[in-house]
Design a protein around this nucleic acid. Structure first.
Lengths: 336, 336
DNA sequence: CGCCCCTCTGCTCATCTGAGCAGGCTCGCA
DNA sequence: TGCGAGCCTGCTCAGATGAGCAGAGGGGCG
């Protein structure tokens, strides 16, 4: 064999074959005739070209997904599903893409949940807006954590749930209570109210949950809405809080950051989320990487909808690869 | 039909199908099962995605070619062959790619020319260097226009021809004469010399020609070599010269720019080139677009080896877009 | 209100393509 | 020089794919 000579000659052949196959879409047989090789060789040439990256196939579409990352995320964290969208440079655009993807996912969930528990926030509101009218039929919606008010002002907790329900021809049941009460007694009292208590009870019975998460900083909707002050946030951060899930602030290791505050927080608990078959976390953007990691590594969601950067962050810099093990080291046969 | 709704739904399906097919390489049947459509629909979805450019297939390789452009060039200008390489940003790199492509082409020319006529210059020298040793067997080479000298200093006219011949195990016959003589009488005299006249005669019998072209400016090798002065060039430009082919300066409409100068130019004439079955023009870079156009529109070459920018320039700014239309205008027949 | 046209669907069949295998070749080593 | 290993080749065969076709559904126009 002529070693270098034939290696490069082969590569050139592969390039020619690739051009003829993918650009001119000729059949492998025809290419064989042109390049004076057998069609089997053409096939091998093409396979080789694909392996060596000579052929680059790219899917350019705003709604394209990153299936490889999805698979990795699912395997690593034992998720039921993972949706990863390509990240545009623009943060606003990114949020929109993630929201759209979440809406797409929601539409496709089988079995269709009769009752869907939703939280609220900017992200969820975008998801609601991205849902097509008639995205499902007869799906009722229940709020799973205290909302801003009953007003239907766009962007408020109520409108999110209502919009999701309306677009599926269902009823929305709102949680008529603040997210965080100032005093524990008030929280207990309002929780005891038949209306409020009933809604929380109903929320526990939801077949699926859809929620996002907030970052523990002053940009939080909790600050905007007046439930927490900048000082509260500062204290939470001192206690190690990385963000909140349905109003409950947790640390990087998945525990409640401030039990006293948490006791005053009304709505579904984290355990219900952890136990749910379908708990869809919608989260995107760099600021949310820490809270996303906290959620995902501690089993608080069964489905994640996110962007590729977040996905990479989740997969790359994990310092305690707990669940990571069953992926590589012990391989397939374990009781996982 | 649900118009927008289903159109975009279809597009989304196409994207999903494309992802599963090209990234996960699942079979169309499997994809059908996943997306709940028949495998035929999946096939159509993929075809659609390819048409609409959702799927982008790119061949990344320095030796890749632009077959579509080649076909267009060939059709438009009645060429026997056209080779178009992707243009790198770097001009130096571009020249190298074009030269490599020309070498590749030369290797593949069938029937193998027993005698190859070559011109000289920087481009041709690069072609010679790009040829692999043993690129052919027994191909003799003859210079078709006057060269710098008989010295074998790299880059000179002589070394180009010699290198091409040596690498094919053949003999090189040099044209031992200046490219342009100062006086017509001298030219006639030297042409009458048996050696020189014999070489020119031999050149007329070559089975193929390989040549490049120069720009009519002071960077020309003719200026470097002392055959022409900056003033000569300025005068040529005034007469409309865009560049030279085997030493003969022509205008954009393919005529000799300065007959008196041309009469003093020794070597093959343009008519021999025009009449040749295989006259391979090797030309690349923006500066050479005008001369390339002059050559190609006036039938002075039967094969062109160039870069994609030049190819586009040749195809675009021509005022007789004969074959250009069949691309978009008539489309598929809907009122979409 | 009914007809026609257009598109989309799922199908049959022929073709194309990839997996896997036996033989042959070259190369490295003794 | 002879032997074994490894790679490449061309093949068989089954599965995957694309072309082309008849039928169905839906919208527009008379």
């Amino acid at each position: 064999m002529v070693s270098t000579e034939s290696a490069s000659a082969n590569e050139l052949l592969a390039v020619r074959a690739a051009e003829l196959y993918y650009e001119e879409n000729k059949t492998q047989d025809e290419i064989g005739a042109i390049l004076r090789v057998t069609r089997w060789k053409v096939g091998r040439l093409l396979a080789q070209a694909r392996e060596r990256g000579i052929i680059r196939i790219e899917i350019v579409h705003p709604r394209a997904r990153r299936l490889a990352l999805e698979r990795e995320l699912g395997a690593r964290f034992g998720l039921r599903d993972a949706i990863v969208v390509p990240a545009p440079v623009d943060e606003v655009e990114l949020q929109a893409r993630v929201a759209e993807a979440a809406a797409d996912y929601l539409v496709s969930v089988r079995p269709v949940p009769r009752l869907l528990g939703v939280s609220w926030g900017r992200t969820l509101h975008q998801v609601a807006e991205s849902l097509p009218v008639g995205w499902s039929t007869g799906v009722n919606v229940v709020q799973i954590n205290g909302g801003v008010s009953l007003s239907k002002r766009p962007g408020t907790a109520a409108s999110t749930a209502v919009m999701i329900a309306q677009k599926a021809g269902g009823q929305a049941t709102l949680l008529p209570s603040p997210a965080i009460l100032e005093r524990l007694e008030t929280k207990r009292a309002i929780e005891g109210d038949r209306t409020v208590g009933g809604v929380v009870q109903m929320a526990r019975g939801a077949a699926a949950y859809l929620f996002s998460a907030g970052v523990a900083d002053t940009s939080s909707v909790h600050v905007d809405s007046g439930y927490l002050t900048a000082d509260d946030i500062a204290e939470l951060r001192e206690r190690g809080a990385v963000g909140d899930v349905i109003g409950r602030y947790i640390t990087a290791d998945g525990t409640i950051a401030d039990p006293e505050l948490d006791a005053r927080t009304l709505g579904l608990g984290l355990e219900e989320l952890r136990g749910a078959t379908t708990a869809v976390l919608v989260i995107g953007g760099e600021a949310k990487h820490p809270i996303a990691r906290a959620i995902v590594t501690h089993g608080l969601c069964s489905v994640i909808v996110t962007d590729e950067h977040t996905a990479h962050a989740l997969l790359d810099d994990i310092d305690e690869p707990i669940a990571a093990r069953h992926h590589d080291s012990i391989s397939e046969g374990t009781s996982s």
